[in-house]
Design a protein around this nucleic acid. Sequence first.
DNA 1: CCCATAATTGCAACTGAGTTGCATAATACT
DNA 2: AGTATTATGCAACTCAGTTGCAATTATGGG
Lengths: 141, 141
Amino acid sequence: MIDLENFLRDNGLKATRNRMEILTILMKSDAALSHTDITERLGDTYIDKVTLYRTLNVFTEKNIIHKVASEDRNWKYALHLDDNSNPETVKEHAHFVCNSCDRIFCFPMEPNIKLDASRSEGFLVNAKELRLHGLCPTCQR
Amino acid sequence: MIDLENFLRDNGLKATRNRMEILTILMKSDAALSHTDITERLGDTYIDKVTLYRTLNVFTEKNIIHKVASEDRNWKYALHLDDNSNPETVKEHAHFVCNSCDRIFCFPMEPNIKLDASRSEGFLVNAKELRLHGLCPTCQR
DNA sequence: CCCATAATTGCAACTGAGTTGCATAATACT
DNA sequence: AGTATTATGCAACTCAGTTGCAATTATGGG
């Protein structure tokens, strides 16, 4: 169990109860979570919807989490699986997107994805995302 | 120049002026287009916004185009670059997403992306999308 | 421990992409 | 040409996410 208070302060954020609650929920999930998902998991802990949106945006700006555009038009938020401390390196993500329940799961990136073709056409790549679409284990039954 | 009328009828759709206009615009673009993009390109040709949304959804259902969830929360629509006649095969896309202008460009997929790790965890993959994030040629200047 | 300052929170109202219902118009088929 | 069916346009709606602002809370210095 890491020290959430100091983790937040190390990222230049005040260590508030709201933020620790939200971070704890994100840490416990193996899938990326929508605003609604997080609200449900908060249960009796009331956090205003605007505060939740703002917190998620602050976490994203501080590179604590990343947000993924989902097929159901909702943002999904997830912790970084990889070390993202160096902004110079090309970020690599892999996501599995379920066609049925629209959940998004994060995986470690497969190494050695080749992308010379697109770079040569004048596109500057600073993040690579492998996005797999299909049925998650739950939705296959 | 292919015969748009017969193309639409072959896909079980009535060949209306609206649909041919929209299809022509999609064929001429090298980037995926949003609803707004298409409206702009229609110029004086007035098409109701609901009709445009419905047309894009029908094209997507008929597998004539595909829609991509963009980072600006707008759907982007683009023709299929590859042959998608066989629904059994695993579809492969590659998209470049510009961080600055949010445009999405479609590329032919790099071959031989390995994804054994995710399949072994119980996920059923039926489409693979390589999504590259960065700056497009225009936004690098 | 308390105070001042700046950051955070909550509420209300708003924005804008995309959808639904329904009446009218256009297409395709005999 | 006549008719069933599909497509279109308009109005009203939905809902995720944002903005403005006043009230509250965290933090660092005395």
